[in-house]
């Protein structure tokens, strides 16, 4: 590639004792506290469960993971790194290096899953599929074009879309298996990735909004229009990708609701309201519950149904400064 390498123009020694944006420290700490490695997850406990899947189910699952590997590789080697030159603070630069590394951990963890569950030949075939799948290549191409482009705000939008939306056609599969008590250790690992991506999407979206504050009303409108157009473009492609993966198992429509639900969350991370209406984003409760065990509990006290005097369960808090 003959592009000119873009780097930060001037580097000053980073001083963590002088903070311009508290969010940088908060997110850095959160990412560090969330740090994990795939070796800690006992994936081999899933071998038996893996063999209860049909051939078609195994094929779908393997392909899903190569697709996710692809996205994490992009985000680790290009995406997060491409955000560094436009960072507003030195601490923001540091956070992106953390994000980049963690994406590489994610990408590597799929290889741990593969080596645990399938043969070398099957792994190679799955990677070949990912190279040849038009929709997967298309989504990589759309995002990579913005990373290579010269608009820092558009780069952040594309990056937030990847973190908060494009992964979810893939994340559906392990949540689906987990809801059926299959591949539960793999699902535990994927949940760690899902948690990380939430912090990444939140942070990059926040920095996008900070950047937007400094722009003219016309430019803000341009960015909003651009964001929604990009989302539509990506969503169209995601629909095709989803059909290719899930049609054989009859899961496509269920996955699409999950996509739209997450597309709305990507928009919210960028400071916009969701685009898809409630009816279109009704995620299968089993999937939601697999993702977030207490999301389906009754926390609508207002509805007056059931035992709605909901008091939280026992949880650990930092009691030293919570002194009543």
């Amino acid at each position: 590639m003959s592009e000119k390498l873009k780097l930060v123009s001037r580097v000053s020694a980073i001083n963590w004792n002088r903070i311009q944006d508290e969010k940088d420290v908060e997110v850095w700490n959160r990412l560090v506290n969330n740090f994990w490695l795939p070796e800690k997850v006992p994936l081999s406990n899933d071998i038996q469960s893996w063999h209860t899947l049909t051939e078609a189910e195994q094929l779908m699952t393997t392909r899903v993971f190569t697709g996710l590997t692809m996205l994490d590789t992009i985000q680790g080697t290009v995406g997060a790194v491409s955000l560094i030159p436009d960072a507003l603070t030195p601490h923001e630069e540091a956070v992106y290096t953390n994000i980049a590394f963690m994406e590489s951990v994610h990408a590597k963890s799929y290889s741990s899953i593969f080596s645990t569950l399938i043969s070398t030949q099957e792994i190679d075939e799955a990677f070949r599929w990912s190279e040849e799948n038009e929709n997967l290549q298309r989504k990589a191409e759309i995002v990579l074009n913005y990373y290579r482009g010269d608009d820092p705000l558009k780069r952040k939008v594309a990056s937030t879309m990847l973190e908060s939306f494009l992964f979810y056609s893939g994340f559906y599969a392990p949540m689906y298996w987990s809801s059926r008590a299959k591949l539960t250790n793999t699902a535990d690992l994927i949940r760690l990735i899902i948690r990380d991506e939430a912090v990444h999407g939140y942070y990059i979206g926040y920095k996008y909004q900070k950047g937007l504050e400094q722009e003219t009303p016309e430019r803000r409108q341009e960015m909003k229009d651009y964001t929604f157009e990009l989302l539509f473009e990506l969503y169209d492609n995601e629909e095709d990708y989803t059909e290719a993966l899930y049609d054989p198992l009859g899961l496509t429509e269920d996955v699409k609701a999950f996509l739209r639900y997450n597309a709305n969350k990507a928009l919210m991370n960028l400071g916009y309201e969701g685009m898809f209406p409630k009816e279109a984003t009704a995620v299968n409760p089993a999937i939601l519950s697999s993702l977030s065990p207490n999301a389906d509990e009754n926390h609508d006290f207002f509805s007056g149904s059931g035992s709605s005097y909901v008091i939280g369960k026992a949880v650990n808090t930092e009691d030293e400064d919570w002194d009543f």
Partner: peptide, 8 residues
């Protein structure tokens, strides 16, 4: 954010 699992 439901992404935080049981900490939602």
């Amino acid at each position: 954010n439901t992404n935080f699992g049981s900490a939602y």
